[in-house]
Structure formats: C-alpha cells, structure tokens
Nucleic acid binder design. Structure first.
Lengths: 256, 256
DNA sequence: GCGATCAGCGGCACG
DNA sequence: CGTGCCGTTGATCGC
C-alpha cells in the first residue's frame, strides 16, 4: 500500500523550499476556468515550479494537456486514499485544475538555480532593425521615416518614403506571410490613406507567401518583397543588404 | 566524480524502451534552426518523450525555454566529460538543440500508458454550434445559411440572412475581440461585397471587445454583439439562447 | 501534404 | 493596468 501522507508531506516540503517538483503517476484531471475540461485516468507527468507554474504532460506532444501559469496556488491533499493536487489562480479569471492521483510512480524535486535569459537571434525585430539600416535592399531610394510607428489601429513595423515622395508601409514577417499578414498590412494602409492625402503603398516583406495571400495582396494593390535571410553567426543576415556604415567606410577609406 | 557513461546508458536504455525521461542538471543550451539561440549555464529540467518531444524547462514560466516537437531524433553522447544530449528534426526544416550538462542532479524515467484524449468545453466551435441552433439571440429573424463557409480569403464562421434578405457574416470569438478579429471580419465582408450584389453586414460576436477594436468596427460600419456565455455542466451555455428543440417542445407539448 | 484558423494560446513591450 | 502583436508559436481540421 502507498504512503499517501508521506508523499503529501514530501511534496509540501519541496514546495516550501522552492524546489521544482516532478510527480509521475496515474491520474485524472479536471479543469474549470476560461474553459472547462476533463481528462480520464491515464499516466502523466506533473511539474510544479516555484512560481506556481503547473503542467500536466502526457507521453506525447509538446504542449501540456492541462496547465496553470505563474501565480497559481498549489494545494496538496489526501482525498479518499488518493493524492489530490490542486492549482488555483485568480488571473486572468478564477480557475482551477484538480489532478487526482490513484497511483504515484515517483516524485523528484530539485533546487534549480538559474538566472540566465535566452539570447535569441533571427526574430522579426532583428530583421526589422537590419532593414532600417538600408531599405535599399527592398527598393532603391527607399528611405526610412520611423520604426514601430503607432497609429490608431495598430503599429507599423517600418514607415518609409519612396523616390516619388509616397508613403510606404513595410510589414516584416520572419516566416511565410499568410492571409492575416495581408489583412494586417491592409489595415495600416487603409488608415493612412484616410488620414493623409498622399499616396500610400504597402509592402509585405517575408521569406515567402502563400498563393492565396499573394492573390489577395494583388487584388488589394499591395506589394510583396521576398526577404532572403539566413541566421549564421549567430545573428541574422539579410542577403544583399549592406550596412550603411560599411558602405561609407569603403568609400572614405578604400583598401590601401 | 560522475559516471557519465552510466548515465548515458541509462538514458539510452529508457529511450529504447519508450519511457518518458526527466533529466535535471546544470547545462547550457544551443539551438539552431528556424531561429538560433544560446542559453548560458544554469539549472534546468530536460524532458524527453517517446515521440521525440524534447523540452528544456527553467524554474519559472510555463513555456519550455528551448524545445523540439514530435519527430525529433535524440542522441546521447559523452563529450569532454560532459553529458551532451542532442535533438534533431528535419521538419519544418533542419534544426537541432544541444543540451550540454556539466552536472546531472537526477534522472527519472517512467512508462506512461495513456490513450485518453482531453474533452474540452467552451471552445469557439461549441459556441458557434449553439448559435447555429438559434441565431435569434443575436437578432430576431436572423436565419442561418451555412456554418464554416469557405470563401476565397478564408472561412466564415456563420453565414446568415436577416429579415431584409441581406447577407450577414457572423464572426464568433470565445474571448475579447481585438483589432485582428475586426480585420478578419472585414476581410470576409469585403470579399462577399465584391462578389455579390446584395448588401452584406458583418457582426462580431464576442464576450467583450477592446475600445480600439470597437472604434475600428464602427468606422467600418460593422457591428458588435455581446456574447454572454458561461461554462457550467460542463458544456457552454449562451445566455438568452433557447434550443430550437426545447422551444418546439414547449409549444407542442405544453406542461400538462 | 498544404493552408487557414483557433488556442484555457503565452509572453513581451509600450502606452 | 490594458492591448497590440510576435512566437523556433503549437495543434487541429479541412481541402
């Protein structure tokens, strides 16, 4: 027979100490909150973090099947000879998960000290930054006006001006552009067209675009620029782009 | 001193047997693929599932800091007295994670048998199904034409007709509608307006809407209907909605 | 298989 | 705080 009380105490102690806890066992899971769910009995992994994060993992797939984010209060109880672990949260609204273990296969707990943050390369923001250095890669004589320009109905990635003094809105995507990318760009273009008397162009700048999105784009009179980039150093690099700094240098200080 | 070879064998054996494995330890993590990342040394949890899922968790937050989805090939190596675990995947493109452990605090492995699937209530689809039974809750004499209607630039949740024989597009949202919800609805409305000669109305149907989204909605001449629902039985229930079945019953078989 | 959309999206940055 | 929007988004469902 299982010593449920002992396991309960073991988990509670680890929680008090701020450990990260993994419980493996057979359980059923109920959730009620923004939605509601029921998961019948099966073998799962439960992970409890010190910040209240609460994850129930099945043996397949990436995402937790049930979860609670940081800030959840976790309670461990003994309930009819079962180990019942509950996580409750008030934000974004009152919600709770109940994990009811009929069997516990194992419990591990670790002190995890980790202040490191992920350094990520190849984000949209990085691509946007690179483009700001030389919009000429998209179109000759295209000059940047503003990055992250807030308008009423959203934020424009890059606002620019072409050689004919037309406003150009550039929407940057790190992956294939689809219908909603086009809708997003169209939203910005429409707003500026209403507000300004200038001609306004819209360019979607992405490594690829779905066929359907391209059709919609053309129907709307918007444009697509294929953004050729790779992630190497690590640091993203846009094919054909030359930093202004380097260009200036090579003019002012030719290789001697 | 650590028996790295033993740990390597332990993990490999568990993988061969299809177990779900948890490794706790101090490691650094590198990723290269759709993007690239570097995470300096710290204490983490590594989870390896039988389907290739590969998760590196820090002691805080819900999401894995580095990961690889189902289908990844996992290799365990001994590398300069460290335990190096690599996950590689070819889809959606060639990418790999390297987790290099300088210390291993613990290894657990479990056979997790679980064929259960989550039953989820309160999804958008469920709300849409309920609305299809009686669109009168949105507007008197609104009759449903088609659910999930594919058009060129997307899929309309509910296509209906009002008492004036106008087409009505209903976009259902289970949570607060924001700018992109409005863009989405607007996209559908514009397409049908081009293709048909009838008047086309668009209604966003959500529990709430952001201030800004409401302004955009009004500016576009679209409409908002507040969708009051709760999740109780469990099964979603829309306030004011009466199932056709029940309504018919009460007329044909009044309480005796 | 691609593609469009939802998700209890989560998380972040900026007003 | 809200809120807009990105994400190595993931997962699902339809064609």
């Amino acid at each position: 027979m299982e010593d449920i009380t002992g396991k309960k105490r073991q988990i509670e102690k680890a929680m008090d100490e701020g450990q990260t806890i993994v419980v493996a066992g057979k359980c059923e899971v109920k959730y009620q909150g923004r939605a509601a769910s029921k998961l019948s009995e099966g073998d799962r992994l439960l992970i409890i973090k010190q910040d209240g994060t609460f994850l129930v993992h099945q043996s397949k797939k990436m995402n937790a099947i049930n979860y609670q984010g940081p800030g959840a209060k976790v309670i461990v109880e003994e309930n009819e000879k079962k180990l019942l672990i509950t996580a409750q949260r008030m934000k974004p609204m009152k919600e709770s998960i109940e994990v009811n273990f009929s069997e516990v296969y194992g419990i591990s707990a670790y002190f995890l000290k980790d202040d490191e943050k992920l350094k990520l390369f190849g984000t949209e923001r990085e691509l946007s930054d690179l483009l700001m250095q030389d919009l000429g890669v998209i179109e000759r004589d295209l000059i940047p006006l503003k990055q992250e320009s807030d308008i009423r109905h959203g934020t424009i990635d890059i606002l620019a001006e072409d050689s004919g003094k037309n406003l150009v809105i550039v929407e940057v995507k790190r992956r294939e552009a689809s219908l909603d990318s086009i809708s997003q760009l169209n939203r910005y273009v429409n707003e500026l067209r209403e507000r300004r008397n200038r001609k306004v162009r819209g360019i979607i700048c992405a490594p690829s675009i779905t066929e359907n999105a391209l059709r919609m784009l053309e129907r709307l009179g918007l444009e697509y620029f294929k953004l050729d980039y790779e992630i190497a150093n690590p640091s993203a690099r846009i094919k054909g782009l030359q930093k202004k700094q380097r260009t200036l240098d090579s003019y002012e200080k030719p290789t001697s």
